[in-house]
Design a binder for these strands. Structure first.
Length: 376
RNA sequence: GGGGAGAUAGCCAAGUGGCCAACGGCAACAGACUGUAAAUCUGUCCUCUUCGGAGUUCGAAGGUUCGAAUCCUUCUCUCCCCA
């Protein structure tokens, strides 16, 4: 993987760059749709390329390991082949499931034991097994196995968790360096900064992660319930330490406004389930604000879903029609709403990039953020 | 014409003397969702409310009872079976 920094905004830390992988180039800032189980829910791979214009998507170690299992993925020749996706892939390590499936797992020094949410069977995820699985999945960018700390959390707990993540990181790096890619294309390992919202811990963690000297770095443990201001403060603090010549990936963030704010702080990569999950629940993100398409007020609104939207669905269908589909629980509702949201997110990143290159990102961002959070 | 069953909130439907403003479900309305256990979850859902309560309900009218959606009488309507 290579990263080339192309431009830095004049009024903020926003950057425009290009990540090059064996599966293609990714212009940054980039939003990466989440495809947990080998599928960006309700969207065809062909639509992701042609309509959403996604350049990279995510898969998940925990979920793919449970189903279909690594024997199937290996037989298929990796996830790219299995799902028919030829562009770059990134896999999360299962670290987020340490957080989201907290009741179903037990953390030990060597790793985490999970009770499968599907059938209750036991599964062990460690720095080493997570790397092995991600080698088998074959993602271009793979993540270190970490403990995503819940919020709020006291300093003592956050430090203990961070220290464990750091010890796991050392093992991840060693195991990654001692193993090989399975399908001929190169893979790269990103370490993850933790430390909750504590200044000293985040600084220590960012320094630890930077010292690993990997090709890119990630910030985890945010957007887990903390106020947006704390998320921004933490991100700003960590970005100041993470090397500027490598991509910075803020994991799990966020709303369109979150993205623009964090780009201004120096973030290059994002992923979030929000555009996909919220689409399935009737929430649409647009340039003018947020629409809850289930609301009665759209019942007879025959104007386009998003007159200024970048995707064909935005002009092809009316709000009233989409509302009808959502209310009727038609599968097409999820397809249209998800296509809309993902296209909007990707488009927004493109606009951000354009404004970074022209040097007026900070000004544009301040105007956009106000509009984006508005409820229509 | 004869016999039988039934009428409960927008719909379906429990409840057969007090714990009933009335279980459930659906619909409706609103909210939540941030490295996906989520096409999910939560709340409201007779009227008014200072959210403590207050007032009117269970086809209609009368009655029994301290007390009735629940028991009795009559009426209205619906469905089924036999002619």
């Amino acid at each position: 993987m290579r990263f080339r920094l192309e431009a830095v905004d004049t009024g903020s830390h926003a950057r425009a760059g290009v990540i090059t992988t064996d599966h293609g180039e990714i212009q940054t800032p980039v939003f990466m749709p989440v495809g947990t189980a080998g599928s960006v829910k309700s969207v065809h791979q062909r639509e992701l390329v042609a309509d959403v214009k996604a350049k990279i998507i995510l898969g998940n170690t925990y979920h793919l390991n449970l189903r279909p299992g690594m024997d199937v993925i290996a037989q298929a020749g990796g996830l790219h082949n299995f799902m028919g996706w030829e562009l770059p892939l990134l896999t999360d390590s299962g670290g987020y499931q340490v957080f989201s499936l907290a009741e179903k797992r037990k953390i030990k020094e060597e790793g985490a034991w999970f009770r499968s949410h599907i059938d209750g069977s036991s599964h062990f995820l460690s720095p080493e097994t997570s790397i092995d699985i991600q080698r088998t999945i074959g993602a271009d960018i793979i993540m270190a196995f970490d403990e995503c700390t819940p919020w709020p959390c006291d300093h003592r707990t956050a430090k203990k968790s961070m220290d464990l993540t750091h010890r796991w990181l050392k093992r991840s790096c060693e195991h990654f360096d001692n193993t090989e890619t399975r399908y001929g294309h190169s893979q790269t390992l990103f370490p993850i900064v933790q430390g909750s919202t504590f200044k000293d811990l985040r600084i220590e963690s960012a320094e630890t992660i930077a010292a690993c000297e990997r090709e890119g770095n990630a910030i985890g443990g945010l957007s887990v319930g903390e106020p947006a201001e704390e998320m921004y403060e933490t991100t700003e603090r960590v970005c100041a330490i993470l090397p500027a010549d490598k991509p910075r990936y803020l994991m799990g963030v966020g709303t369109p406004a979150n993205l623009l704010e964090c780009i201004a702080l120096g973030i290059d990569m994002f992923d979030c389930v929000m555009p996909t999950r919220n689409a399935r629940n009737g929430m649409l993100f647009t340039q003018e604000g947020i629409i809850n398409i289930r609301n009665e007020k759209w019942k007879s609104d025959f104007t386009p879903i998003d007159p200024a939207g970048p995707c064909f669905v935005d002009a092809a269908y009316s709000k009233a029609y989409l509302r009808h589909l959502v209310i009727s629980k038609e599968i097409l509702a999820a397809q249209i709403a998800t296509l809309h949201n993902l296209s909007f997110y990707v488009w927004l990143m493109g606009e951000a990039r354009r404004h970074i290159q022209s040097g007026d990102y900070a000004i544009w961002k301040n105007v956009m953020v106000k509009k984006l959070a508005h409820r229509l």
